[in-house]
Design a protein around this nucleic acid. Structure first.
Length: 572
RNA sequence: GCACCAGUAGCUUAGUUGGAUAGAGUGUUCGGCUACGAACCGGAAGGUCGGGGGUUCGAAUCCCUCCUGGUGCACCA
């Protein structure tokens, strides 16, 4: 597609001695379309040129007037205060957008990622613990980033770095040893294991000896003890079976399920490298890296005083492994902001591993806010968690009730209720900036009106409905662009024009909510258009143009929603 | 105590590489289904952008300071 901003920048560049690249950064989009489609603020030149901004604007305008007249993409340029406001040629915009829609099978697909390798570490639930609503954000944020990087032409590797190792397993093993026969873990694995986990934790609090026995169990597990390893495998397999039920509902996919345990034989190398740097110190019986010089007060523990490893060591081994296996340009870690310090530490220690600069620079913690209950933090140990499966089932149930009420004759209600209910939950989690905490509230998450997933789905369903009624989709080359230059149509077209730019912004900030907001804007624009205009009407040319616009809007809504992990029903 | 993050309408929030009159949704309220799906659309009311200072032609945005809330701070992950 033609890049209007760049066209304007190159015209201004000829009239000034500012570089085109710099100009594209300065050129902005006015909030109010009265002020044109693009604007160049002259204020920043005032000091340098020692002239008032409107004077500068006027001078530039005189210099570029001839070029503007010649450029068929730009209609005119006007001065408003210190701004130069550019008005693009509407029919050019219409033609460009419709052409792009017609030629792309998957709208937004490009190769700007140039096959660069992006490793995304996300979801990562803990084995033997409930998969609760706190794990949803990592799963859906990581999943959305995965798809968005992919459509932009990156080579993406999704890793589910399962929490399948550590002292928690020592605890479970100890609990199972003590009371295993009291619980039926085959029948209801996670709930029964959770009971054991809570019980053993309480005992650990009372009795230091038990805690040490647990730590010892983990040590044994690391050393390949048969009893411990068999139990660990059993817990892991049973848990994974349950997790997969949730992943099936969310349609989450991973390229690798290598959890923490996978790195158990890869840590000696990390310790060896760190030993050689001379930075690994003994402290209180443990081996640590002191990071005070890097401005981090808390040292990074590489090996505990009993000789077993930590989360940090495993993450370092993972960095080493992933750099070799995937040759990553970026390695994203999608976890809650509680782990900010942890990642600061290991990214700092990673500099000591002798890796190429590219790998170190590629490490990035994509942190997000917490899901809190109205009463405060969720805790498996306290037993006050809301399980993801319960939330998803409730969402599907509520969607079904609404379908019964609004569209009782709908076919395959089950499947559509699933799409709508889960779409609502996913969108809710992706709608706000990552950094925001979220107070869990059933009615907020399962609201289907306003800025929600179902609103986007509903808008899409209406486009499908119109197309069905029309019975045809006209050929793009037969559309008369002058039929789509009204305010409502242009609003949609401008948004569609922006789609790829939005996807790029998402990857720059690793912030899927930018796409969520965009889809709301697009759905609103189409809804207004729909409300204001008859699409199927007497004027055949007008009808063709509007049907094609409907088709285009639907295509982009669907493409965008799918990138967020939301399915689009054809009816609802 | 130290560090990091957040504070925008009753509630949830967008806008934070400084730029034109701070935008939405929700709730409240008024209006719109005998023509394409009302899970929708349009209007109204609702803002000391946490407080105070500063920088600037211009600050929700940058700097300082204070207040409030959250998170983290060595053998959990």
């Amino acid at each position: 597609m033609k890049n209007f901003k760049q066209i304007i920048a190159s015209i201004i560049a000829k009239a000034t001695n500012i570089k085109e690249q710099e100009l594209t950064d300065y050129i902005e989009k006015p909030k109010d379309t009265k002020n044109g489609d693009y604007a160049f603020p002259c204020f920043r030149l005032a000091k340098e040129l020692k002239k008032a901004p409107p004077v500068i604007a006027n001078e530039i305008k005189e210099k570029i007037e001839k070029d503007i007249e010649q450029a068929k993409e730009i209609d005119k340029v006007e001065i408003a205060g210190g701004y130069l406001n550019f008005y693009i040629n509407k029919e050019t915009l219409v033609t460009e957008v419709l052409n792009e829609i017609a030629k792309s099978e998957e709208y937004g697909k490009s190769d700007i990622g140039n096959g660069k390798n992006i490793v995304i570490d996300y979801s990562a639930p803990n084995i033997a613990k409930p998969f609760h609503i706190g794990h949803l954000r990592s799963t859906v944020i990581g999943g959305a980033l995965y798809k968005i990087y992919k459509i932009l032409g990156y080579n993406v590797i999704g890793i589910n770095h399962l929490g399948d190792y550590g002292t928690q397993f020592g605890k479970l093993i100890e609990g199972y040893k003590l009371w295993g026969n009291e619980y039926d873990i085959e029948k209801d694995p996670i709930n029964e294991l959770t009971k054991i986990y809570i019980r053993i934790n309480n005992l650990c609090k009372e009795d230091e000896n038990v805690l040490n026995a647990c730590r010892d169990n983990f040590k044994k597990l690391e050393n390949g003890d048969k009893y411990c390893t068999e139990l660990w495998e059993k817990f892991r397999n049973l848990s994974l079976q349950e997790f997969k039920k949730v992943y099936d509902l969310l349609e989450s996919k991973f390229d690798s399920w290598n959890g923490e345990a996978f790195y158990s034989d890869k840590m000696p190398e990390v310790i060896e490298i760190l030993e050689k740097t001379g930075k690994l110190q003994e402290s209180q019986g443990a081996k640590i890296i002191n990071l005070e010089e890097q401005g981090i007060d808390t040292p990074c523990i590489i090996e505990k005083s009993n000789g077993s490893t930590t989360y940090a060591t495993r993450d370092l081994a993972a960095i080493l492994y992933r750099s070799r296996k995937y040759d990553f340009d970026k390695a994203l870690y999608v976890t809650s902001y509680e782990q900010i310090l942890h990642f600061k530490q290991i990214f700092e220690v990673a500099k000591l591993l002798g890796l190429k600069e590219k790998y170190i620079k590629g490490l990035e913690h994509v942190s997000f806010g917490m899901v809190l209950l109205p009463t405060g933090k969720m805790s498996t140990r306290e037993g006050n968690v809301i399980k993801l499966q319960d939330l998803l089932n409730e969402a599907i149930q509520r969607a079904k009730e609404i379908i019964e009420q609004k569209n009782p004759n709908l076919e395959n209600k089950e499947e559509i209720a699933k799409q709508v209910g889960i779409g609502a939950v996913i969108f809710n989690d992706l709608a706000n900036s990552r950094v925001k905490d979220e107070i869990f509230d059933w009615d907020t998450i399962l609201n289907f009106q306003g800025e929600t997933g179902p609103y986007i789905q509903y808008t899409y369903v209406r486009t499908k409905s119109v197309l069905k009624k029309a019975g045809y989709i006209p050929k793009e080359k037969d559309i008369k662009p002058d039929k789509l230059v009204d305010e409502y149509s242009l609003q949609i077209l401008k948004l569609i024009y922006d789609f790829q730019e939005i996807l790029i912004q998402v990857t720059e900030k690793n912030e899927p909510s930018i796409l969520s907001r965009y889809l709301i804007e697009l759905a609103k624009a189409y809804s207004s258009f729909y409300n204001e205009n008859r699409i199927i009407c007497e004027d055949k040319q007008l009808q063709d143009a509007r049907i094609y616009l409907t088709y285009a809007a639907g295509k982009v809504l669907k493409s965008g929603a799918n990138l967020l992990g939301i399915n689009m029903p054809n009816e609802m």
